[in-house]
Design a protein around this nucleic acid. Sequence first.
DNA 1: TCCCTGCGGAACGGAATGTTCCGCTCTGAT
DNA 2: ATCAGAGCGGAACATTCCGTTCCGCAGGGA
Lengths: 221, 221
Amino acid sequence: MVRQIEGNAPPGRAGRTARNDAAILDAAREVFLEDPKAPIAAVAERAGVGMSALYRRYAGKDDLLRRLCHDGLRRFIGEAEAAAADLDGWTALAGFLERVVASDVHSLTVRLAGTFTPTAEMRQDAERSAELAAGLVERAHAGGRLRADVVVDDLGLVLEGCAAIRVPDPVRTGELRRRHLALLLAGMASDHAAPLPGPAPRPGELDWRWRSHRADPHEGL
Amino acid sequence: MVRQIEGNAPPGRAGRTARNDAAILDAAREVFLEDPKAPIAAVAERAGVGMSALYRRYAGKDDLLRRLCHDGLRRFIGEAEAAAADLDGWTALAGFLERVVASDVHSLTVRLAGTFTPTAEMRQDAERSAELAAGLVERAHAGGRLRADVVVDDLGLVLEGCAAIRVPDPVRTGELRRRHLALLLAGMASDHAAPLPGPAPRPGELDWRWRSHRADPHEGL
DNA sequence: TCCCTGCGGAACGGAATGTTCCGCTCTGAT
DNA sequence: ATCAGAGCGGAACATTCCGTTCCGCAGGGA
């Protein structure tokens, strides 16, 4: 399957190069979203380029995966910063989650983490994203509409749960995820009696994907 | 890693054979739960047996996977039937979900489906399990505690979401899943105003894993 | 006209993995 | 005591897969 980017880049050699840049990145996102373990050749094929075009840009598969994952992380941070502009703490949090789920950022970032060695900068960005998320949860708590026993790291569970929803049709997948998230948001609202069971997720408990990656207890997934 | 089954089977050759039966099945469950694409040799290693012990029992990898998946399906049906004994529709449904999540049945069944060709009997059992689940949802609806816009196939989303929760420590994984499920159950309770967004999951929409398996649009996952 | 960037795609080498097979052990019956 | 063979361990095999390299070419820009 070949994918054509009708980008508005200048014609000529430079234009073609720029178009290939985008095509490769887009193709990689799609391919690795479908299968995190996909061969790198599948990316080249879907982008409509040869292997050389790929290896001219990235040192290897790891490099491409890192780039993809880092982009997703940055997007996550961008959404969190955008949500901070919402004056209402609850809608800020809810909207943030909806946008993250809709943009499929979490699937990519999380399912790819662990297949390469993260850079120091990525770790910093991950930390920053955690801070932003914590801020969103704090504000939502202050507003009173978020039930008191929900903690920041519950967001990780929520995102992971939504990312797991998947049917063959991507559009339908988005709809079903949105629905599932609505269920979760309803559960996160404050008008509930029974407290959540078990010890709440501890800070850093869900960060294991970002660790050294060689002592990774989970090979699959 | 070697696993010893201290089963109370009779000693001697027959006993050893029976013990190996169980060891292989247990090892396979653990290994494929960690990584659905794990090599079959990993199963033999964890069971503490050689390849021959494996191939004496199963015609091939597919056969083992089928067996594992079918067992999970049967367990699912068992839990559903047990839940039917609960007189209260809501606690029947909630307890059913909790037990299914706790026993990790869904992870195995769902993550393995699609890696082999399902048998006709499995399809029948899948259908039966769907009927039982529909009955649970119907009863919960009749009781009034389940919000009206939740449909049977939402259960599939819930189970899939919970199965996606996973940290290195299995015990902790169970706790976090239980917590996540509690959030979802709270969201499924009837005292909520906003209806769930998007078209509800259609019957059979989540059954694609059980289909012919060769035209499977999802290679990974 | 000519250089050289960027590229296509085949070829390569190594790793992973499902399956087979040879020979041994030790049980249980004769 | 003997022995046949069930059951098994584990190495070897064949094959597939995949990341990476490399050779040769096309065609823009000076």
